[in-house]
Design a protein around this nucleic acid. Structure first.
Ligand SMILES: [Mn+2]
Ligand SMILES: [Mn+2]
Length: 552
DNA sequence: ACTATCGCTCAAACA
DNA sequence: TTTAAAATGG
DNA sequence: TGTTTGAGCGATCCATTTTAAA
């Protein structure tokens, strides 16, 4: 579809009802009777009432003033508003707080004048409002505002959130995705949608995820209010939860445990923090647990265990640094450090450069003076190569992988299933790119054919064809196969930490990867991880350390 | 997966 | 009147 | 002095309208 395509009148209602229809068809049995009934009742409302209702749902709200709602395609808005209220889809009795929140600064000033209250002209909205509330009785103010304006608020918003969650499979996308696709802002791949697959088998699958979100919000609220008691109750609730077998549910749960634990750690309640971390199987739970453990020899034992089977590069890094530090006092730690010597991940190149906005661009310029050509590549380049080489595998019609038309990756992209369910195809593709001519063709042709099509691995806006071409021509096939093969096992986890600069010598096979570090910056564990892998593969890698010099 | 993430910067603690 | 942030809507 | 650690920041579709604050 082309940019600036005209949308049909009431497009938002069409989209809303499409979402409603598809979600309730797929998950009919997961809706409660009263929810299904509300859906039917909504669909039976007159067109203008449905339009007005959805217009409000799309806006921030939750309260509106009827005089602030005006749409060319909705005739007789007051009548629609009345129908909505009468049918139980809207309420009108706003609290004083909700009402005054909808008053503009000048309207508050007018109100003060009406009440004969003197005020300095330059007072800000907040101050004016405070003055009005202080000098008027709440009852009088409420009565005055009710008389002067009609307030309106759509009800049952939670139901539509549930429906949207069912439709998209997440709470991050919403109806604006329909619009972005229709006007051509985003082009989604034309994959086959699986109409029978279900992301959720039971209502509990959904409610568990929704409760994770709700508890997180409540905890955050209690934290901001400084309400330690409420935080404690929520924590007990989280700790007592029955584990859910779903992979996604577990990840959300462990994530919540980590964040809650971290907050107790900040508040120096290490007992509560430990209980949270002990239940979590997601980094950095083990690291936090080792850090707050009082007994140093137990902490070292934990670190040694972590080093033996790290869940991610941060665990590996932590264990090494921690054991090295404990080595003075703990003989076990000293023994481990001695038997696990580490080579530096990359040779260091030192630069003294005049200060610039971007330290990476400064080094890129310095490299150009040394005869290099190159790009600020970082994750962008390698993710793009991954997304292009495996384009067909990523969008392959694996059962359940695609459940609606607004996806930039299969649903299982962040799970171990992604690799296992496509292993044969992925291995076949890796074998094919061992042929360097095929690799070059594959990447450049796919880029041309798919330029602009939404993929989680491609930032077309920032991608540079010249960079792709240079990379694909200089990186040897076995290196490419090793890197992309590693990424394929867990594309999300391995999508970051790539070196800043991709460099090459024009007209030669020579190429290099440099990670740039300004003063005070240090290698992050994932960055070290990739540097070591590239180095193991025989690539030229370097750590470019920059010191700023005063230019004179 | 934009109450999420990644990478940079800064400052304090640490060795 | 100007500027910037927030909200809106295609 | 250099390194480690934790916290904080920016940047996301984008053109136009509304609102607040000078
Ligand atoms: Mn970087
Ligand atoms: Mn860097």
């Amino acid at each position: 579809m082309s940019e600036n395509a005209r949308l049909p009148a009431g497009y938002y209602l069409i989209n809303f009802e499409t979402m409603l229809r598809e979600a309730s068809a797929r998950y009919e049995d997961l809706l409660r009777p009263e929810e299904s009934q509300l859906v039917d009742q909504f669909l039976a409302l007159p067109l203008n009432a449905r339009r007005l209702y959805v217009r409000m749902l799309m806006r921030k709200g939750p309260w509106f003033r009827e005089d602030g709602l005006s749409y060319a395609e909705i005739e007789d808005l007051p009548k629609s508003s009345e129908i909505l209220c009468h049918q139980g889809f809207c309420e009108t009795e706003a609290s004083l707080t909700d009402m005054v929140a909808l008053l503009k600064r000048d309207e508050i000033a007018e109100g003060l004048e009406r009440c004969g209250i003197e005020f300095p002209k330059a007072l800000r909205r907040e101050a004016l409002l405070q003055l009005w509330v202080e000098r008027t009785s709440a009852d009088a103010l409420t009565a005055d505002l009710r008389l002067r304006y009609h307030f309106l608020r759509p009800l049952h918003e939670e139901l539509w959130e549930l429906v949207s969650f069912m439709f998209f499979g997440n709470s991050d996308q919403d109806l604006s995705d329909f619009v972005l696709a229709d006007i051509g802002r985003i082009h989604y791949e034309n994959y086959a949608v699986d109409t029978s697959a279900r992301l959720f088998q039971t209502r509990h699958d959904i409610d568990f995820l929704r409760s994770m979100r709700s508890i997180r919000e409540q905890f955050e609220e209690a934290k901001l209010a400084g309400n330690a008691e409420s935080m404690g109750l929520l924590t007990d609730q989280v700790l007592a939860m029955e584990p859910h077998p779903g992979i996604r549910q577990q990840r959300r749960y462990h994530r919540l445990l980590n964040d809650v634990g971290r907050e107790w750690e900040r508040m120096e309640d290490f007992g509560r923090a430990s209980r949270c971390y002990a239940l979590s199987q997601l980094p950095p739970a083990r690291e936090r647990l080792a850090r707050i453990t009082q007994d140093p020899s137990r902490a070292c034992a934990m670190a040694i265990q972590m080093a033996a089977a790290p869940l991610d590069p941060s665990e590996e890094r932590f264990a090494r640094v921690f054991l090295k530090r404990q080595g003075k006092r703990e003989p076990e730690a000293a023994r481990w450090t001695q038997s696990h010597p580490e080579a530096p991940p990359a040779p260091i190149l030192r630069f003294a450069l005049p200060r610039q906005d971007s330290v990476e661009m400064a080094v890129l310029e310095a490299a150009r003076e040394l005869g290099w050509a190159g790009f600020f590549a970082e994750n962008l380049l390698w993710n793009a190569l991954f997304g292009l080489v495996f384009w067909e595998e990523l969008f392959a019609p694996v059962p359940g992988a695609f459940v609606h038309t607004f996806q930039n990756a299969p649903m299982d992209i962040a799970t171990p299933d992604f690799f296992t369910r496509r292993e044969i195809a992925i291995r076949a593709r890796l074998a094919m790119i061992e042929d360097h001519a095929y690799l070059v063709r594959r990447v450049l042709e796919t880029a041309n054919a798919k330029w602009g099509v939404a993929s989680a691995f491609l930032s077309w806006r920032h991608l540079d064809r010249a960079m792709l071409q240079a990379a694909v021509e200089h990186v040897p096939s076995p290196v490419m196969a090793s890197i992309l093969g590693t990424m394929a096992v867990n594309p999300r986890a391995f999508s970051s930490g790539f070196p800043d600069l991709f460099l090459y010598k024009p007209g030669s096979r020579e190429w290099a990867l440099w990670e740039v570090k300004g003063p005070g910056d240090a290698l992050r564990p994932e960055q070290e991880r990739w540097l070591r892998q590239f180095r193991r593969l025989g690539c030229s890698v370097a750590l470019a350390r920059v010191a700023w010099v005063v230019e004179r």
